[in-house]
Computed example of a mutant assay.
Amino acid sequence: MSVQQSAFRGFANPVDPSPAELRAWAYQPDSVPLQAMPPDWDLLVAGDQLVQTLFELAMDPACPARRFALHCLYIYAADGIRTNFRAHPKRRFRKLVEQAERHGDELMTTWAHNSRVLLARPDLFNYHDWCEGGLVRQERRIG
């Protein structure tokens, strides 16, 4: 039985979900609505521990929480770039960008493009776009 078919039973600790919990929730996001999550849950989960899971979810067009995962990837990218990669390893970030460019659809290649533009031009950072979901709600290429 795949995660997508199993019932999501909730988070043991929503502030620190496991990759398996996040994946199970992402395929049944109505089981625990985002409004029921802790404040700034997107910022909490957009870290190194869950970035690979978030990336896999964002790469899956069939994932109901895909746009949430993509939003978290925008946060992850901005956080890494704006801290000069003190917050996240630059190598991991680059690998994700390259994977999105090679295997991603338009949503993911746009994320990769925007991430590369922000890397080259950190002055283009806009909190609303990168951390509040602006680039997910109004998909566009920056730069």
Rank of each mutant, 00 (worst) to 15 (best):
Q5W: 07
A7F: 11
R9I: 15
G10L: 08
F11E: 05
F11M: 08
A12R: 12
N13V: 11
N13P: 07
P14M: 06
P14G: 07
V15F: 07
P19Q: 10
E21A: 07
E21C: 06
E21L: 04
R23V: 08
A24D: 07
W25S: 01
W25Y: 04
D30R: 10
S31L: 13
S31N: 11
S31E: 13
P33C: 14
P33N: 15
Q35D: 12
A36H: 07
L43T: 04
V45C: 02
A46P: 01
G47H: 01
L50R: 00
Q52K: 06
Q52P: 00
L54Y: 03
L57T: 05
D60F: 06
D60G: 08
P61H: 15
A62S: 15
F68N: 01
L70I: 05
Y74W: 11
I75S: 01
A77R: 01
D79S: 14
I81Q: 00
T83K: 04
P89N: 08
P89D: 13
R92F: 04
R94T: 14
K95E: 14
K95W: 08
K95R: 14
Q99Y: 06
A100E: 02
H103S: 12
E106W: 08
L107M: 07
T110L: 08
A112C: 09
H113L: 11
P122T: 12
P122Y: 10
D123G: 09
F125E: 03
N126Q: 09
W130P: 00
W130Y: 09
W130Q: 00
W130N: 01
C131D: 03
E132V: 06
G133W: 02
G134A: 05
V136T: 07
R141M: 10
R141V: 10
